[in-house]
């Protein structure tokens, strides 16, 4: 058992780029679900349009990175409007159905072989991140070596940009949610008829919330795509959304830093269990009849799932949540 490698990959996962992308996805989802009570099950689509916005603009049409960023953000806004206009006047469950379907439609659209020359179909797109890494001020340096954890110059650049985006998003969410605007959102989560009876345009606020959370999600898509220097349609499937929900609930819904800490804990656990199990099965710690190397990959989800069930039973408010607030529902 190589414990130092297990610990180093786990520690890297705490601040790694995957954690950043999922944190941004979850911050957006927290605006939807945690603060406004919108059941958006298509958050992966917002990351997808962000990622493909850059990829198609740069790789397919050879335009600049900045145009790609602008297109990605605009696509997230348009997607939010498309999802919201028909569904936000209806009950919450309709939004859930429509968003999960829309996210799948968008993923299948990227996969479509007829569109191969633009989207690369199931192979996705590559070589669009050069502009981004050309901006890297750490380029050519050795990166960071802290003994257990090491990051290359490229990794360092995406981490700096990514964490800046996370902190900016948190700041915006904090400012908004401590303002009267945020108070209206939280009131809508509690009872939208009451809010309507007090003269607020509930539809408009729900739409603003959907757009804001979607745009923050698209930022996560940028980080995800630029880090991997590739986009592939199946990464933006329903699994992404469910992980993001898990992270929101783990961190504590309707808390500014909940999604960030949730994402850190989620990924460090997943990576730790995964690398421990694969080390263990490589070193024949478990007998063959108990678990093979290929089975170890699935067992990590079983263990993480078990952990989450225990969390929901013993700490339903998540890490940052307020127990009293959760208990009010029981009345």
């Amino acid at each position: 058992m190589n414990w130092s490698s297990i610990f180093s990959v786990s520690l890297e996962a705490i601040i790694g780029s995957t954690t950043i992308a999922y944190a941004l996805a979850a911050i957006g989802l927290n605006v939807h679900f945690g603060y406004t009570g919108l059941l958006n099950f298509g958050q992966s689509a917002f990351l997808g349009v962000g990622a493909y916005g850059i990829a198609i603009t740069v790789a397919t049409f050879s335009q600049s990175l900045w145009l790609g960023v602008a297109i990605g953000l605009a696509a997230a806004v348009i997607l939010a409007l498309l999802l919201g206009i028909p569904t936000l006047r209806l009950r919450a469950d309709y939004l859930a159905i429509v968003t999960i379907a829309a996210a799948e439609i968008i993923r299948l659209f990227y996969r479509a072989t007829d569109l191969r020359k633009w989207t690369g179909a199931s192979d996705g797109l590559q070589s669009f991140s050069q502009d981004f890494y050309d901006l890297n001020p750490f380029a050519g340096s050795k990166g960071i070596d802290l003994g257990l954890i090491t990051f290359t110059d490229r990794e360092l650049w995406i981490l700096v940009v990514g964490w800046t985006l996370v902190l900016l998003s948190c700041l915006v969410v904090y400012l908004l949610m401590s303002s009267p605007w945020g108070r209206v959102l939280k009131a809508i989560r509690e009872d939208e008829d009451a809010v309507r009876s007090l003269g607020k345009n509930v539809f408009s606020y729900k739409m603003q919330s959907l757009v804001l959370g979607g745009v923050i999600g698209a930022l996560g898509g940028f980080v995800f795509a630029l880090d991997r220097a590739a986009v592939q349609p199946d990464t933006y499937g329903t699994e992404f959304t469910f992980f993001a929900y898990t992270i929101v609930i783990l961190g504590g819904a309707a808390r500014v830093f909940g999604p960030v800490v949730g994402s850190m804990i989620f990924w460090v656990l997943l990576v730790f269990i995964d690398s421990t199990l694969s080390e263990a099965s490589n070193n024949k710690v478990f007998p063959e009849w108990f678990m093979t190397t290929s089975q170890a990959g699935s067992v990590r989800y079983i263990l993480v799932g078990l952990g989450l069930i225990l969390l929901l039973i013993y700490r339903p408010q998540g890490i940052f949540g307020d127990k009293r607030e959760v208990m009010l529902d029981g009345r």
């Binding site: 915006v172 400012l175 908004l176 303002s179 009267p180 605007w181 945020g182 108070r183 209206v184 939280k186 009131a187 989560r189 509690e190 009872d191 008829d193 009451a194 809010v195 009876s197 007090l198 003269g199 607020k200 603003q208 804001l212 607030e325 009010l328 529902d329 009345r331």
Partner: peptide, 28 residues
Amino acid sequence: KALSKLKVIDNMRLGATGQRGETFWRAL
């Protein structure tokens, strides 16, 4: 329809109309 997870005072503040802080950009 009391808004359970809002404080009593926030329930009240919500009722005021024409609040500048209820528009997105000014809320920031």
